[in-house]
Design a protein around this nucleic acid. Structure first.
Lengths: 114, 114
DNA sequence: TCAACCTTCTCATGGTTGTGTGAATGTGTA
DNA sequence: TACACATTCACACAACCATGAGAAGGTTGA
């Protein structure tokens, strides 16, 4: 039960070109025939359709989903972003001036309860 | 202890233009003087510096950090991405054909243990 | 008051994204 | 063996991103 790229394209609403692009982003990677043809299984077709609605309903770009993928492949990146966001929630005033740097650095050790 | 935009720029390595851009992305939002001048506190200066190293050490773009911000401001977006990624971890073959759709839909109910 | 800074807004621009189209070539099947 | 379809690669291009620079005007503080 596998479809060729053109068939997969017509049943999912993507263009063949875009299917190759989506694959290049690492989002949906079909198997290959011995000769190199892309073979899309039912799982991938479903993924392609839901990807489509995901983009539309949330106003997200393919590149954004690609970045989200990066976030789960590089946990240290996700962790770095976490600490950055959790540090001084955009309103630093009112914190005693002296504690500041140590406070920052503590956060980098163990993520705090927010 | 607040710096004006030009001072903040020189001590953090950003240009004033970029500080305004960073603010527009929602990443570092300084207070304002009664007359409308941006006022950067020590917390924001630290944030700007760490932001800079974050970008450099991980090869991330400002827009990516902006998207990460979106992810924590719109939990339903993050959830949608979670379910999409957790569904059929890019290798659907080998799963009995019939269980497929129900399997998919289950996942959308309660996130599974990966 | 006045110099030095700030504000917003607009124009400019090189780089990247998303997407199509075509060329040159290989694959699958009746 | 053909014929329709696939592959990769490259050119194209509008739209957007990240930045700079300038204009027109307001704020600050000695």
């Amino acid at each position: 039960m596998t479809l060729t790229i053109h068939e997969a394209a017509t049943t999912t609403g993507w263009s063949p070109r875009m299917l190759r692009y989506v694959e290049q982003l690492g989002l949906v990677e079909p198997a290959r025939s011995p000769g190199g043809y892309r073979l899309y299984g039912p799982g991938q077709l479903q993924r392609l359709r839901t990807l489509r609605t995901l983009l539309e309903t949330h106003g997200v770009e393919l590149g954004d989903v690609g970045f989200a993928l990066r976030l789960r492949r590089e946990p240290e990146l996700a962790a770095a972003l976490d600490t950055w966001f959790d540090t001084t929630p955009t309103a630093p005033e009112g914190v005693p001036d002296t504690d500041w740097l140590s406070f920052e650095q503590d956060k980098h050790q163990h993520l705090l309860n927010r």
